[in-house]
Amino acid sequence: MLIDTVLFYLFALLVLGGGILTITRRSAVHSAISLIVSLLGVAGLYLLQQAEFLFAVQIVLYVGGIMVLFLFVIMLVNLDESAKQRQFNRQWLVALAAVAAVGVEVGFFFYRGKDAFQVAEAAPAMLPPGMGTTEVLSNSLFSEYLLPFEIASILLLVAVVGSVIMAKKRI
């Protein structure tokens, strides 16, 4: 379907472009905005994969929560001086080379295994009418994956406590 292809490439462009911009901007705010763009692209990709809940969660949580948090912290921490500093550290070249090597290897794996993904063309299952993917997701989440869910909630609790303590002026 053509529209899928176009949308995919559009969203892919958003994602990758945003990512590249994120890592190359001098100003932190610019990086944050670029990251938001990238995350929005990722959300679009979720939608193309029929992951509506994740699309929503991505927007709300990631962009609305985390990125806002990032922006708050950027504002809190005065990054003007650091914007004047050198942005890339001294190991950038060798790091780039290593990552490029990894990329080559991954490409090699893709090339060797591209025939293993025939399974990708299986027909998607038909949802019963009136049931959305969210319902299926929640069914799975609260029955099969209840324990990880609870643990994740504890994790969040710990994170809350931890971040409060980390940010206190005096413990």
Partner: peptide
Amino acid sequence: RVQAYAFFVVVGALAFLG
């Protein structure tokens, strides 16, 4: 420096994949 350590992780992954 943490980034140096992260770099070694990547190098290790490289070796592993290699």
